[in-house]
Design a protein around this nucleic acid. Structure first.
Lengths: 106, 106
DNA sequence: TGCATTGTTGGTAAAAATACCAACAAACCA
DNA sequence: TGGTTTGTTGGTATTTTTACCAACAATGCA
């Protein structure tokens, strides 16, 4: 069995992914690095909000950043996190399927 | 690119996993179903708190429950979620490695 | 029926997360 | 050097999450 300390460490990393904006950021970093302004342009949010979402991902160790000229370049450090989305999709499909069963039976 | 609606649906499922207690519940359901009292005994928490954590997992479609005699039996609906923990461990190990690099260089 | 046992629900207080604005820092360029 | 662009940090209001207690519902048992 997992200890509570280990669970807390895991929780921080999973929590860092548990926000729609941060999920979209991870998705857009899946195939290549992106500059802050490219990421910022995806959302109708204040730049400080986007910057703070990136900080959450960085502190979790999911992305890293480096200065390049004027830009700040963000990189997905651990691409395997996107593998997980397949399982999340499986949960979603299972939910849909179960709801259909309910609808049919009642 | 993923839409914001899709990201919100995914986010709800990931958020359901993003708590140390709920991660431990998932871990303990990995190999077999468990009764409420077995799960409750893992924690020094009020029974209402544990019950509500289970409700969060249930509403996300991660676990299901069924009454069996006196007990409420909980089942992990989508075991693949535990596969993800391997990737979370990869993030943790990467973080440790990077911190060691920092410590050496400074 | 009366009384435990088992688990859920309602209410509330405290903590954490989120988004914005404003101010700031760093780098570039005119 | 002075101004512009790019991104971060500080502060604050709002929302969400969390945990407890108390009350309740459902089941089994004496």
């Amino acid at each position: 069995m997992i200890t509570i300390e280990e669970a807390e460490i895991r929780s921080k990393i999973i929590k860092a992914m548990a926000h729609p904006v941060r999920l979209m950021i991870i998705e857009c970093l899946k195939d290549s690095t992106r500059s802050f302004s490219e990421i910022f342009d995806l959302f109708a949010l204040d730049k400080s909000t986007v910057s703070k979402h990136l900080l959450v991902l960085k502190e979790a160790g999911i992305v890293s950043s480096k200065k390049s000229g004027t830009d700040m370049i963000y990189t997905l450090e651990v691409p395997c996190v996107t593998d997980f989305f397949g399982c999340v999709t499986a949960v979603i499909e299972n939910n849909v399927r179960r709801q259909q069963v309910c609808l049919c039976k009642r």
